[in-house]
Simulated scan of single mutants.
Amino acid sequence: MKAVRISGFGIAPVLDELPEPQPRAGRSLVRMAAATVGHIDRTVWSGAFFAHPPLPYIPGVEAAGTVVASDRHAPGQRVWLRGSGLGTTENGTWCELIDAPDEALGLLPDGLDMALGAAFFSPCTSAWVALHEIAGLRAGERVLVTGATGAVGSMTVQLARETGAVVFARAEEAAGQPVDLLVDTVGGPMLEAALPHVAPGGRAVLVGYTAGNLLPLNIAHFLQRDVALLPLNMFRRDAAGRAAVPSLLARLSDGRLKLEVKRFPLGEAASALEWITQRGHRGRAVLVP
């Protein structure tokens, strides 16, 4: 089978020919139809993540495909894959035939594009958990979303509007109109600039840090404004995210939610890793066989 492998941290990925994995108890073999390229893959690849598979390794924490062999699912079943160490402590999804723990698989509705099935989990569940589990969003509240053109930001805007919130996709739109909730997906200077738009007693959910991971904070000013800074850690919130998956997939299937994807051939993983770093890129990158 063809698989993308990384031989060292920061070294460009290469496409290799590897033996096909064999069926094992407690694991499923899935024919990959699409595999996501995300910022977590870049972090593992850089060596900066808290865990990583033994080198060389196959990256990829998310994918979608059809079951080839499994004790839990019938052959031909459409599934999405995420978690259980895929791409972080063991080989991941950037290969034609994925060897995954049974627990990493979830059912994918018929008719849903496989690229969406691979790409939906991180942005959709992150946005859902940020709004409903952490922020406790209520109808009529005013919400500012930074990075609204990105995958998580776009999904946050859509889900917040669905809840009945008044949503601002740029800080300039909220000028002079304090917001109840800030959902920041980029961090750095953009987070610093957005925080003053939150009304005293409001809250800010911190989702990402692609624009920088440092936040200068005037403590006296911060205390006076009494804004709650609420971090989103989806590893700790995984159960809440998975519980929301069926309703999120239903919304994607019938078009109530939209998520853009950009496809790259499996052999162009390096280009996909670079594309997701470009400012203003829209949607998610996926590798296809």
Rank of each mutant, 00 (worst) to 15 (best):
L182Y: 01
A272N: 02
D254Q: 12
P21I: 05
Q77M: 14
D110Y: 04
L15F: 09
V183P: 00
S7E: 15
L182S: 10
L232K: 00
M234V: 06
L273Y: 06
A12L: 11
P178H: 09
R142S: 11
W275R: 03
A250R: 14
A104M: 01
R237G: 00
L248R: 00
P75Q: 12
A118K: 02
V44R: 04
E141N: 06
A240P: 07
M190W: 12
L15Y: 01
R282L: 12
M234S: 00
G202M: 04
R242P: 11
A63K: 02
E162W: 09
A135H: 00
A3Y: 00
S46G: 12
R142T: 12
L107T: 02
P196A: 00
V166H: 13
R27I: 05
R82S: 12
I98R: 03
A127G: 12
P246E: 08
A193C: 09
S253L: 15
D180H: 13
T89S: 12
T88D: 04
V68N: 11
L108R: 04
A100G: 06
R31E: 13
R24C: 12
R138T: 13
L55G: 11
A269N: 07
F168Q: 00
P200I: 03
G8H: 11
E268Y: 11
E20I: 00
I40D: 09
R42H: 04
R263H: 13
I219A: 14
A228G: 12
E62F: 06
A272H: 02
H39T: 07
A51S: 15
S28Y: 00
F120Y: 13
G241Q: 01
G106D: 04
N91D: 14
A239T: 13
A69C: 03
P56R: 07
I98L: 08
I134T: 05
